[in-house]
Simulated scan of single mutants.
Amino acid sequence: MSEISRDEVKHLANLARLALTDEELDQFAEQIDGIIENVSKVRSVDAAGVEPMSHPHSIETVMREDRIGTMLTPEQALDQAPAQAQQRFKVPQILNEGDE
């Protein structure tokens, strides 16, 4: 049983502004059906009691404690800058927007 019709593939191709031949429409409809079938198989797996993970390995992220430390003053940070303006690094404009 087909999950996606050739007309639906044609509609998607039109939305994506793709010009597909009749053979390509048939081929993509078949491929998309295969993808949908594989996703359906994954959905049928009993995952009760399985904790969701963001990574396939059990890793523990170690975070350091935040500590306030000494920082550079604006003058120190800009000391070696080739150009500066308003206590900031001045770089060449790359977009034609606004003033320098």
Rank of each mutant, 00 (worst) to 15 (best):
M1L: 08
M1Y: 05
M1F: 08
S2A: 13
E3G: 00
I4P: 00
R6S: 12
D7I: 12
D7E: 15
D7Y: 05
V9P: 04
K10F: 04
K10G: 03
H11R: 14
H11W: 13
L12K: 04
L12Q: 07
A13G: 09
N14Y: 04
A16L: 15
L18Q: 10
A19T: 15
A19F: 05
A19D: 13
T21A: 01
E23V: 15
E23C: 05
E23D: 15
L25G: 00
D26S: 08
D26Y: 02
D26H: 03
D26V: 14
Q27H: 13
F28A: 05
A29K: 01
A29S: 10
Q31T: 08
Q31W: 03
Q31R: 10
D33W: 09
G34A: 02
G34E: 04
G34W: 02
I35P: 00
I35Q: 00
I36L: 12
I36S: 00
I36Q: 00
E37K: 11
E37Q: 11
E37C: 03
N38W: 07
N38T: 12
N38D: 12
V39L: 12
V39G: 01
S40F: 03
K41I: 08
R43L: 14
R43C: 11
S44G: 05
V45G: 00
V45Y: 11
V45F: 12
D46N: 14
A47Y: 08
A47P: 00
A47L: 15
A47C: 10
A47M: 13
A48V: 13
A48H: 13
A48K: 12
G49L: 07
G49Q: 04
G49E: 06
G49D: 06
V50A: 11
M53K: 15
S54R: 10
S54Y: 11
H55T: 15
P56T: 11
H57W: 13
H57M: 14
H57A: 15
S58L: 10
S58C: 02
E60L: 08
V62D: 01
V62R: 04
M63I: 13
M63N: 04
M63D: 04
R64V: 07
R64G: 03
R67L: 08
T73N: 07
T73C: 06
P74S: 06
P74V: 07
P74A: 03
P74G: 07
E75K: 01
E75A: 09
Q76I: 06
A77P: 00
A77M: 09
A77W: 08
A77Y: 11
A77E: 10
A77I: 04
A77N: 01
L78K: 02
D79N: 09
D79A: 14
D79E: 14
Q80L: 10
Q80P: 00
Q80N: 10
Q80C: 07
P82E: 06
A83W: 08
Q84P: 01
A85Y: 02
Q86F: 12
Q86M: 11
Q86N: 15
Q86D: 15
Q87R: 07
R88M: 13
F89N: 08
K90P: 02
V91P: 00
P92N: 06
P92K: 03
Q93L: 10
Q93P: 03
Q93S: 13
Q93V: 12
I94H: 03
I94Q: 09
L95T: 10
N96H: 05
N96A: 08
N96W: 02
E97D: 07
G98C: 09
G98Y: 09
D99G: 07
E100P: 00
E100Q: 08
